[in-house]
Write a protein that binds this DNA or RNA. Sequence first.
DNA 1: TTCTGTGAACGGATTCACAGCA
DNA 2: TGCTGTGAATCCGTTCACAGAA
Lengths: 213, 213
Amino acid sequence: MPLEIPEVVIERLPVYARALAALQARGLDVVSSQELGDQLGVTPAQIRKDLSYFGRFGKQGRGYNVNRLMEELHQILGLDRTWSMVLIGVGQLGRAILQYGGFGPQGFHVIEAFDASAETVGEMIGPLTVRDVSELGAVLRHRHVDIGIVSVPGENAQRVIDTLVAGGIRAILNYAPIAPQVPSGVHVRQIDPVLSLQSMTYYLKGNTASAAK
Amino acid sequence: MPLEIPEVVIERLPVYARALAALQARGLDVVSSQELGDQLGVTPAQIRKDLSYFGRFGKQGRGYNVNRLMEELHQILGLDRTWSMVLIGVGQLGRAILQYGGFGPQGFHVIEAFDASAETVGEMIGPLTVRDVSELGAVLRHRHVDIGIVSVPGENAQRVIDTLVAGGIRAILNYAPIAPQVPSGVHVRQIDPVLSLQSMTYYLKGNTASAAK
DNA sequence: TTCTGTGAACGGATTCACAGCA
DNA sequence: TGCTGTGAATCCGTTCACAGAA
């Protein structure tokens, strides 16, 4: 399982892991690439090929053991541990993210929150006291942080991202509506519902009642 | 500009449009594919090729007129009008979406909100009174709705999506952590920060300090 | 027989490279 | 000279199809 696994493959693995968790919850213990594919709208060949980058997890004639495959995927993806995150930008959006209950159960924890506004700095949100964004660099030096979440206005996002990168952060979840510049080796995922809407309207205009994806 | 423009191309157009808006705000009136590409981390050739699907908007030796190109893109994408949306699922996440100020300025308006819980139904949120989700089908029949936003728990998401589709909705922004099944011709965009995080951790584990995207 | 793992074939998107216009 | 528009070449991910293990 050497170098050069396509990034698209990596992005599909968590989808598989989630589907397996659902099967596990239903008590299933074997699943074929066909069944998994039907559920996810992916071809069986793609699932088999994707998994084959990492090993031979299936049994010919039977399929994949659900528990086993789940464990393997968790290990591959690093989901068998917890990850610490900082959030920058405690506005409406940032608060919603902090309040969101979906990260914790998956092992993702926000351990510090930052904002630039004097009103917000010092405020307590859940267990966190909002710190001034000017302290971000220093905090990154002193605490172990894996991931940065950026929820500041677009105008400030690149600056914040530069600080994260300078502080050694190599994974960023960016909610700001910009295409950030980062050095290679730093991974960014963009959460941008407006862009999503704006690309769907193309099809609504009737340009093509084309296939869904 | 006939059939079969790749979907990836369509997804990049809003990115270009946004970058052009920024240039416009700065008073620039001409931009080359090179400059635009630098800003967005896209190759100039790709920008030219993408745009060439729709027409010849540039001037050789000069570049693209910012205003002109913006207008063209808006027309192509249907951003020169407003779009009406319904939201289903007025929990924490749904409230955050309703509160979010980023949709309106881009012409996207939530005109009805629905929930299943008796406590929430009837509540007023901004200008909207939350309706019972059982009325969703009827509302889709009586009001013009372009897009559905789904922010219900995963267990209920497929059912809600089926109702939207049955009601003629062809574009869905789905925040629920499932891979929905929709007939071809219905477009879905997934907003799923947990999946985004779970794919980045692969690289953090050191599998490859590979290039960022 | 069933379903995996995988090399080979395919298809489609990206990049190249250059002709042509301003 | 500078930069677009675009066929051709390339690259890369997906699908095919089948050998082989249970």
